[in-house]
Design a protein around this nucleic acid. Structure first.
Lengths: 233, 233, 233, 233
DNA sequence: GATGAATGAGGGTTCATTCAT
DNA sequence: TATGAATGAACCCTCATTCAT
């Protein structure tokens, strides 16, 4: 015998009204409004009324979906973090030509981190870090930190292949990242630069950064391979 | 020529009570109170009453010296910037052993930039940078940027002495700074680290950073000198 | 005439679903939820959501049965009054030994009126009496007032039997009630006492109160009967 | 030598502007507004906006004088309590004719406790007693309880003079008070009576109450004295 | 008819700014 | 000129009520 009237609680496939705080469309709508306001004004200066207006939902609805202002902000930052760091590390998965891979990765990283949107998000997190330090910590841990681990893994593989010689891989990974952002990150975050760096700038910085990095850590074998490569080309 | 007017407003010119909003002592007093409060709590959380109390002046007086909270904050940041970067670059003035000088400078820079006080000040500026972009820009321009110029000058001197070979000195100066802060700055500003790095950590980072830098940019002559040095020692 | 229409709305007329706001079971269910919440929290602090949860019905349903929060509260108080004063006066129905009957009745009355539940209900009514004066009036009229009438009837019977001599029976009935509650009611309702009086306390108060009452209103005949009674015992 | 410029902080006899939260006129103004609103609506239903309007001061000013709504309410109740019970017990200080003194005192008490103003204040306290039980307790303790002690002292003096014979003076004092309020207090507080009792009603209740009390507790000596008194009159 | 998600007015409280003293 | 008491708009959040489902 076929179940004809499925318990609606268990099998809610119908397009009926979602439970309170469960409608993903509404949730996204609120987050989107919150994004505009928080990113634009920072945590403190953003008012729930602003968000209400921007999101096009009522105050009460926001408070059904999010416990309070802080939780809404945290949810937004989580989202933002996910968006920012998504796909950033894929290029490290396929080990190809070392220098080329580092440059490609570095350019992606640098472009992303210094893009207007991402800078603004980071500023918001930094600005709120005094009030909600765990938030900043979590952002770093699940974003930059995770990327850092990927870079370390990549460097370790290069070491195993005899292309790099590094004593302190952890530190080297940081150095690599910083070299790719040399000068750009701080300029952007302090709004000394009001526009994101151009692709050309980024290429210049990253190419040079990778060069420094490889001069410091590249092995004889790596140099020989590069020379051989260059000659065949 | 002698002022003859008996207008009491002008009498103040002679050592009497300064004109409204003109007494530099009072101004300093206000800024000092503002420093404690703003740095401690951040821009939004700081209340004018707190500052009033901390500065030991009345609300009205503050508003004579500063248009509003934002302007007071800007004035403070200007001051703070001066304090932070004061003396940071002295070590570059006396050209000594290259590696040693770079390490000493790098450690001073890194320790300063990542100290709790300075991190908090930077967070506050960054957090306000969306609302007051010029503030962040000015902070960077007269702080980090000026330091950057000093580093460039130093590198140019090393180049002239034949110790370094650098194509893009501007970029190299950034690279040097970033290498000295590798991993630390972002961790601090996002409050992933809740405490300033220890002296040992800073030494490890800077020593390695200088090493990378010199491997990338040191000339044969520099290497020879270092070897000679090491042998005599 | 037979209803022929197949309109499903009208089918409900036959024992099916009751008309909106007419199902007495559901009504009782709502009142029961409201009781728990209102008595526990007081009128203002009670939220319709609490009642919704406690009653196990939806918000909309409550608003079908009751115009608004205030009307629901009034309905509850009506009910509550019935419950409180139910059975309180039975002991007066069987005229037995006068002193004994008065003590038994007085103790029941005193225990009931000062019980935690009832005190809270009375507080809630009193607290709302400014906003909804009729509510308090109705509560008194159908509760204490009705009891007062019963006491008067009882006293009149005792007068007829020659046991009491009272000029103003109405007033004497009040005096009797107050003597049974001496000190307790006000202490409870102002929450000077946070717990209901013990049985022993109540006995002490009521015994003494009845004694005062009988000394004031007992006839020579009553005294003689009591003496006789005591001697046989 | 005479102090000519008294330190204004120490000797502020001038009629200058009072310190924040220190102006007794403004404080009284706020309390007066609060009285109207709280007494009229009860604690919860009263809004600070209402009080603001009624008191004719700004919201901020209220919060300078009182920490929060609850403290304002408590301050009001303290005031109210003071006003209510002031002078109520003076009549007990001069021991005169026993019955006469008791009647005079009882009538003052009864009239006061059942006056419209005082009933409303008591209702407000009772209504808030769920939320702020200590407040009700304090009100009772410093008001009715203190009066109760005065009555006990008076009764003890009468006992010493051989006019009364009482085993449990504490209880007897409560009984006396309740007899003076017989039926009135509860009727008023539940707003069954919407108007305060007339002087005649009060006289009737109190005269009868005192009579009951003296019949129960008066000594032979007291009766003899009264008889003697009556004959001379 | 019943539901409960959504609404938005209004709650208590804070604080940058003003202006009488 | 300096003061700080007073202001009131704006803050975050709650909850009685409505109405689409």
């Amino acid at each position: 015998m076929v179940e004809t009237t499925a318990d609606s609680d268990l099998l809610d496939l119908r397009k009926g009204r979602p439970a309170a705080g469960q409608d993903p469309v509404k949730r996204a709508q609120i987050i989107e409004g919150a994004r505009r306001v928080f990113i634009d004004k920072g945590f403190e200066a953003a008012s729930m009324n602003d968000i209400t207006r921007e999101a096009g939902v009522s105050k009460g609805t926001i408070y059904v979906y999010f416990e309070n202002k802080e939780e809404l902000f945290e949810a937004l930052i989580e989202e933002e973090r996910g968006t920012i760091f998504k796909n950033m590390y894929e290029v490290l998965d396929h080990f190809d030509d070392l220098r080329h891979t580092l440059v490609r990765f570095g350019m992606g990283l640098s472009a992303k981190i210094t893009s207007a949107k991402v800078i603004q998000a980071q500023r918001t997190v930094v600005g709120a870090a005094d009030r909600i330090p765990e938030l900043g910590a979590r952002f770093y841990e699940r974003g930059p930190k995770r990327g850092h681990d990927k870079v370390m893994a990549f460097l370790n593989e290069a070491i195993e292949r005899g292309l790099l010689k590094i004593d302190d891989v952890d530190l080297a990974a940081y150095q690599f990242t910083e070299l790719c952002l040399a000068g750009l990150f701080r300029q952007c975050i302090f709004s000394y630069r009001t526009k994101a760096p151009t692709q050309a700038e980024i290429e210049r910085v990253v190419t040079s950064g990778v060069d420094v990095f490889l001069k410091a850590y590249g092995t004889a074998k790596f140099l020989a391979e590069e020379r051989a490569h260059a000659e065949t080309a």
